[in-house]
Design a protein around this nucleic acid. Structure first.
Lengths: 191, 191
DNA sequence: CCTATAATTGGAGATTGTCTCCGATTCTAA
DNA sequence: TTAGAATCGGAGACAATCTCCAATTATAGG
């Protein structure tokens, strides 16, 4: 649903160099580097940078796409190997674990979740899809309520991503997950 | 804890004109107008704009400060007149009601919540304080769990604010509140 | 291997938005 | 009324983004 045409050799090389250098810079916290400098530091011209990544967000998306895909894969694996409600809990707890200390990923996810359409929105949609699947399975298993959808859970996760640099981030993020899980379970008639 | 020195007559006039025009523009959805143009349209020089509001965020904060203060007052009023858990529910539901259709307020709150220090952070801190009070009262009344703090609730609200332009905003925001409330209540040993 | 064609490149400079500076103006208090 | 302080306005310095195209590099066909 994405890759269509194979890039020319030099184009691929430059694109990869840009992503690699950007990943390095993001890991180092240099998020608001002058956009043109990503090109300079990667050793390519600014025209090349803009051809491959029209915006700063597009570059960030490319850098973290793999990581996001891995999270989605993990969700599907949990879905396949654990009871539905355990899979859901494990995924959400793992989501916070994974974000913690990875500011670049948190920032990028917050941006993607705020994007409604276009190629950039794909990442958030993929995440929304796996959450929807986990939720549906748990509903089917009778483990959680059915009157609150994946959109609400995504919105809570959006808050977790957007608040990445809060001093009590970890505690609060864990608290949000606790509330979401307990809230989902509470709607089910006490059994 | 804020106002110290009374402004000179012309300064106050200009400041008020800036806020009034900005409120009008925000209400009309013109959020990313060139910053200097807020001055032009309000009929003052750019120097005057920057003297009163060093950043776009500071201007937005001033525009919505009243509204935010009103929300906090309302929380205290509910706190004083309703049982603790009803006050909490009423406040959170009202929060979403109030945000709905007021994109400017939502955007601004999202920005303030992402601000950790400085004068801009005051607004979010005030909101955090009233939520903390509502929560503490509900804990005292034995209505909700005591192992999840106001920071977590604020983080969930942050998500609600940050996702203001999602197509299913209202449904999802209501869902988040439902989860938060149910989650808070679930931690209490079934009574 | 060589060439014709197409894709891609680099980076100078146009464009656009932000912010500063200071002479002119307006206010206030005495 | 006036001296002095506070504020104003807006030209232009500065900074970041983004475009454009002559030069370069890759690829496919002969």
């Amino acid at each position: 649903m994405t890759d269509a045409k194979p890039l020319r050799a030099d184009a691929r090389r430059n694109r990869d160099a840009l992503i690699a250098k950007a990943r390095e810079l993001f890991a180092d916290g240099r998020f608001d580097l002058r956009f043109d400098d990503f090109a300079k530091l990667a050793g390519v011209g600014t025209g090349t940078l803009y051809r491959h990544f029209p915006t700063r967000e597009a570059l960030a998306e490319a850098v973290y796409r793999e990581e996001l895909t891995a999270m989605c894969d993990r969700a599907r694996e949990l879905h396949a190997t654990l009871p539905a409600d355990e899979a859901l809990e494990s995924f959400l707890r793992g989501f916070v674990d994974h974000l913690h200390g990875h500011e670049g990923l948190a920032r990028t996810l917050a941006t993607l979740m705020a994007t409604q359409s276009g190629a950039l929105a794909e990442g958030a949609q993929a995440l929304g899809q796996v959450i929807d699947d986990l939720l549906a399975a748990a509903v089917n298993a009778g483990a959680i309520r059915d009157d609150v959808g994946a959109g609400a859970v995504m919105m809570a996760l959006h808050g977790i991503c957007a608040a990445y640099d809060h001093p009590t981030y970890r505690t609060d993020a864990d608290g949000v997950i606790t509330l979401v899980l307990a809230g989902l379970r509470r709607g089910v008639p006490a059994r």
